[in-house]
Structure formats: structure tokens, C-alpha cells
């Protein structure tokens, strides 16, 4: 998978600096919107490990996003983020393990249908049973900003900006971690599976196990993004697990470009920006969304990342 080259990385860092400086020049509404884009970018980035990494198109990825978000509701209120964030990642990863183990007995379209069905099953779990606090969603208490015993009381006025910085920091960390992962032997094996799974199997790789590890890591990362969404919104809803959200994340990946690790970040920002611009023109969100999906598939098969300067092949 393509990792951004020197110019590309510079541009990404420039973008990060612009986002980080927003509290000094943007309204609190736009801070919230930027946080939405950052969390969406994390979610899409976690999916990119599957789609761009190993060529696994999952339509159930939102389930792990939702599990991470519901972790904030299920854990006792008042805990610190230093505890809830790893717990959300762990819960989402634990949920991804059996789903991945079963789904990976299939390939291609079957994988897609099975992940969609299991995602729907988890959706029903939170929608229909008392576990999730009801089908209309529930408000949650935001975890406290407390790391290594240092409690940081954030005044209400500054909450949006602090959340923005935390989300930005987590996105950068996630990107760096995935870039490093793709350079390891494991990352190379994933790309090999994407190129030709049978050949990798013939070479003696346990491809199903490699894919399962990627599935669980991607699930845990999706859980982190779900946790941050719940923390930003102070609200969780079964719709977080719906397959529409999975499809949206797939669009962000495709919009940004499948071949590049930074693609989903561009895709998420473009998608959130387009959605925001659309609300100025029309109330018919789905119409705009549908036309964007259609236009991207028909006109932009290489995605936005093709517009950034090409970097070195990070993977092969």
C-alpha cells in the first residue's frame, strides 16, 4: 500500500496543523464538525487495513465501531479515558474475533454477505435487547480526561477544542501505527494476500490466520473510533452499528483511494465536507449521498489520493 511520500506527508502535516489551529479562528460548530471528520477518518482508516491491506470488503465493520461506542455506556460512568479507550478497543476486538473467525471461512462476496449479516446481528443485539438501553439510543457520561492519575478538569467552554485535539492526536497515532504495521513482515504478507491469496498459501503462509489478525486489529481500531464518537457526541445509538455506516466508510475509503494509506483521511474529510455543503442546498440528504456514491464509482475509481504527489511504494 502506498504511504504518502515526502511532499505528501508534508501536505498531510500541514492539514493537521490547520485543523489543530481551528480553535483560534473557527466557530464551535465547526470544531464539532471537524471532530466528526476526524473520528470518521479514524473509522475509515481502520477499514482500510482490511480493504486496502488484504482486499477484504466488509459490510459489517460498523458493528465494531458501535461496540466501541457502547463501551462508554456499558462501563461505569466517571472512569478516565485512559481506561475506557483501551477497554473499548478490547471489547471491539473481542467481538471481532468470532465474527472474523466465522466470516473468514468464506471469501469474496460471501465474506461480504456474511460480515453484513453478523453486523446486523450485533445491531439487533443493541436494538432489541435491554443490553443497549433501547432502540432510540441513550445519553452517556463522557469519560474524564485523566491520565496517570492527573485529572484534567476541562471547562465546558473548552470541551470542543480539547476533544478536537484529542481526536487529531489519536488519528495521527493511528496513521503512524498502521504505516509502521504495513512495513512489517505482517503488512507485506497482507499485501501478498491481496495480490494473490492462493500463491501466498502455496508459499506456506497461514493466510486465514493472517487475515483474522488483521480483522481483529481493524475491529479494535474501529472500536477506538466509536469510543471517540460517543465521547464527542455524549450519545450512543443502535444506528451506530447499522450497515449504512459500514457502506459510508467504504465510500470514504474509495473516495480517498484504495491504494493509499492516507486515502481514507482525505475521503473522510471530503465526505463530511460534501455532506455539510449539501445541507445548504437541499434537505434531501439521501439524494445527494446517492449521487455522490454514483459519481465516485463512475468517475473517480482511483480516488482523491491520486491527486496527491505519488510517494514510494511502502508495501512491496
Amino acid at each position: 500500500m502506498l504511504v504518502a511520500g515526502r511532499t505528501g506527508t508534508l501536505l498531510l502535516l500541514l492539514g493537521a496543523a490547520v485543523v489543530a489551529s481551528m480553535p483560534w479562528w473557527a466557530s464551535s460548530y465547526h470544531l464539532q464538525l471537524a471532530s466528526t471528520a476526524l473520528v470518521s477518518a479514524m473509522f475509515a482508516l481502520s477499514l482500510q487495513l482490511l480493504v486496502g491491506g488484504a482486499g477484504m470488503v466488509s459490510l459489517g465493520h460498523a458493528a465494531f465501531f458501535g461496540v466501541g461506542a457502547y463501551a462508554v455506556y456499558l462501563l461505569p460512568p466517571g472512569l478516565s479515558i485512559g481506561l475506557t479507550l483501551p477497554a473499548a478497543a478490547l471489547l471491539a476486538g473481542v467481538a471481532a474475533l468470532p465474527v472474523g473467525a466465522l466470516s473468514l471461512r468464506t471469501r469474496g462476496f460471501f465474506f461480504l454477505m456474511v460480515t453484513l449479516a453478523f453486523g446486523q446481528m450485533l445491531f439487533f443485539l443493541f436494538h432489541d435487547t435491554p443490553l443497549g438501553g433501547g432502540k432510540d439510543g441513550v445519553f452517556v457520561t463522557r469519560p474524564a480526561f485523566e491520565i496517570f492519575g492527573l485529572l484534567w478538569e476541562v471547562p465546558r467552554r473548552q470541551r470542543a477544542q480539547v476533544l478536537l485535539w484529542v481526536n487529531l492526536g489519536l488519528l495521527i497515532a493511528m496513521y503512524a501505527a498502521l504505516a509502521a504495521l504495513m512495513r512489517t513482515l505482517f503488512g507485506h504478507a497482507l499485501l501478498g494476500i491481496r495480490a494473490n491469496e492462493d500463491r501466498m498459501q502455496a508459499l506456506g503462509y497461514d493466510t486465514r490466520r493472517i487475515k483474522l489478525v488483521a480483522f481483529v486489529i481493524a475491529g479494535a481500531l474501529a472500536g477506538i473510533s466509536g469510543h471517540m464518537w460517543a465521547m464527542t457526541e455524549a450519545f450512543v445509538n443502535p444506528e451506530f452499528l447499522s450497515w449504512h455506516r459500514s457502506a459510508e466508510a467504504l465510500l470514504m475509503v474509495l473516495l480517498g483511494g484504495i491504494g493509499a494509506l492516507h486515502g481514507p483521511i482525505l475521503g473522510a474529510f471530503a465526505y463530511v465536507g460534501l455532506g455539510e455543503a449539501a445541507t445548504l442546498i437541499t434537505e434531501r440528504q439521501r439524494l445527494v449521498e446517492g449521487l455522490v456514491f454514483l459519481a465516485v464509482v463512475l468517475l473517480l475509481p482511483k480516488g482523491l489520493a491520486g491527486l496527491l504527489p505519488r510517494g514510494k511504494e511502502g508495501g512491496r
Binding site: L250, L287, V297
Partner: peptide, 15 residues
């Protein structure tokens, strides 16, 4: 690619 087909038909659902 599978991904293109998924997004095409998802777009149709929305429309």
C-alpha cells in the same frame, strides 16, 4: 472490483 459494485448498488438503494 467488488467495492465498486457494492457502492454502485448502495447508491441505487439510496436513490
Amino acid at each position: 472490483e467488488h467495492l465498486d459494485q457494492v457502492l454502485l448498488t448502495f447508491a441505487l438503494i439510496l436513490l
